[in-house]
Design a protein around this nucleic acid. Structure first.
Length: 498
RNA sequence: GCUCCGGUAGUAUAGCCCGGACAAGUAUACGGGCCUUUCGAGCCCGGGACCCGGGUUCAAAUCCCGGCCGGAGCACCA
């Protein structure tokens, strides 16, 4: 709660041409893959600005390629936006408005500003490159109207005819060289089925929709920059007003590809099993790893800008924010990775009651029963020498009698915590639970090389109290790191970060 | 190849439009110290950058030109 407020106060630069109460932004996902952090950051920005100016937000699925879109992805986005606490005011799919697109297309053909082109793909490509017009461009309006009708009547097969806008074949901006605005697709669409086979292309659908939704501001990545002119031109033809564009460069997180293609390749290579792999920048991956939506939000609002330069974020930037949110609320537990047995002579069995958090007392207390036998981490054993004194945190000091890789023998020693005594975590031998911790790391080292240790599995023992931890709770295993409980049945945790 | 756009510490950014108080701010990472019954958090200190070369100017991170490097686009995808 307190944290929410803090983020809201963070300032975003003012939005150009923004009028309070009149701003309308949009979330325009293409439901052809799982939502990832790039969508999240773009969504957060569009949403934050709408909020900042008391405006409205549209969730509009850009689903005009029947071959690419799948039902499950629509839901992935809705879920993802909800997770980020993005609230949208309206929702629609572009595929619902096909008839509307037809009406506008007809209007444009009647205006003499579009034509039906029968050139083969390759020819279009090469003429466009040369800046030359083709013979179909000079067909008269009635001819074009006739062909347009024929397209709908199924008189042409996929690839045989397209509708092109009359732009400027000599334009420096190649998107203006008579772009295709409709094509024939012989493939059923997951939402509207096989009802249509003439489908609008992106620029047409998006510009008309942005017009009818009264979008005032578009915040998007820079690969769309060249399309501003085209999209404005389309709206000008049909008498709609244009939005203000704010574009910024794409980004990546170091060692972590975001593109569907690359992620799929990783899955196909057997390096990962699913799209919610904790090493992936998908929303589900981040969530499983223990990244909080508030951290993604704060990261977006405070650590990024609208630069056009190429960016490669270091994960530590996000982790640090996440840790600051987690630290005051995560319960502490003892966990001993790669455990080694410790016997403490002269220690009477007993029970101690210790806090779940060093300062946040609202998290309560836990009890641990112990005997004279424990597990401790081999990482701590490595540094031990005979006669050293160590402290089992909250419990007792122990003088090491015999430290070996396999078993450590010590004897109870008096006193409490002190300056030069290392304090380590421990687990009672007879009352411990075996747990597995998945430790995700970056997928690629120096750009291209696959990281062989991108997902290590660490086994160890945790104190019995972890049975209270439910799936999704993020705890801190002391001196190990923050971990999210992924499965209570198999006792699997995923390390979030240190 | 063509067109457009960028280049501030390891990383991400502020500053650039409207040149001067910028011997460049912040976050993160790193090093040191303090604190702490965690190697977490917190506190303090430290090193670390204006891509290069010219020009304009009393004055350039900021304006201009050239170079180098990087990114994006050049679909019947979005």
């Amino acid at each position: 709660m307190v944290y929410e407020k803090k983020i809201e106060e963070k300032k975003l630069p003012p939005l150009p041409d923004a009028v309070r109460g009149r701003v309308v932004t949009r979330l325009p996902p293409e439901p052809s893959g799982y939502m990832h952090i790039g969508h999240a950051m773009s969504g957060l920005l569009n949403y934050a600005y709408a909020r900042m100016y008391d405006g409205k937000v549209w969730l509009r699925f850009e689903d005009t390629d029947p071959r690419k879109v799948k039902l499950e992805y629509y839901e992935s986005f809705r879920k993802g936006y909800k997770w980020l606490k993005i609230e949208w005011d309206y929702e629609k799919n572009n595929s619902e408005d096909i008839e509307l697109f037809y009406d506008y297309a007809e209007k444009i053909i009647e205006l003499g500003r579009a034509y039906v082109c029968f050139c083969p793909h390759e020819k279009i490509k090469s003429l466009r490159r040369k800046g030359l017009e083709c013979e179909h461009r000079s067909q008269d309006i009635d001819e074009n109207l006739k062909y347009w009708k024929m397209m709908h009547d199924g008189r042409f097969r996929e690839g045989e005819a397209i509708v092109r806008l009359i732009g400027d074949m000599k334009s420096q901006n190649t998107t203006m060289r008579d772009p295709a605005i409709f094509r024939i697709v012989e493939h059923s669409h997951p939402i509207v089925g096989a009802r249509y086979h003439v489908w609008p292309l992106y620029d047409f659908a998006a510009s008309i929709e942005d017009g009818v939704c009264n979008i005032t501001h578009i915040l998007r990545t820079s690969e769309f920059a060249l399309r501003d002119e085209l999209q404005n031109y389309i709206r000008d033809l049909v008498g709609m007003s244009n939005p203000t564009y704010i574009e910024y460069s794409r980004f990546e997180f170091k060692g972590t590809p975001v593109s569907k293609r690359k992620l799929r390749a990783i899955i196909e290579a057997g390096l990962a099993e699913r799209w919610d792999d904790p090493r992936f920048p998908t929303i589900e991956g981040l969530r499983r790893r223990g990244i909080l939506p508030e951290a993604v939000k704060e990261f977006t609002l405070t650590q990024t800008g609208f630069s056009y330069a190429k960016r490669e974020y270091d994960w530590s930037l996000l982790y640090s924010l996440n840790r600051k949110i987690l630290d005051p609320i995560a319960r502490r537990f003892f966990f001993t990775p790669s455990p080694v047995k410790l016997k403490v002579e002269e220690l009477e069995p007993g029970e101690i009651t210790i806090p779940y958090h060093p300062t946040n007392s609202s998290l309560g207390m836990r009890k641990i029963c112990y005997t004279d036998e424990f597990y401790i981490s081999s990482l701590d054993v490595e540094n031990m020498k005979d006669r050293d004194i160590i402290r089992l945190k909250y419990l007792a000091n122990v003088k090491i009698v015999n430290a070996s890789k396999y078993e450590v023998i010590g004897v109870r020693s008096g006193g409490g915590p002190a300056q030069n005594i290392p304090i380590i975590q421990w687990v009672p031998l007879h009352r411990s639970l075996k747990v597995k911790v998945l430790v995700p790391d970056i997928l690629y080292l120096d750009g291209e090389k696959v990281n062989p240790e991108s997902l290590r599995i660490i086994e160890g023992y945790a104190e019995e109290n972890i049975v209270e931890v439910k799936v999704d709770e993020i705890v801190q295993f002391e001196r190990f790191g923050f971990c999210r409980c992924d499965s209570t049945i198999d006792r699997i945790f995923i390390k979030t970060h240190d």
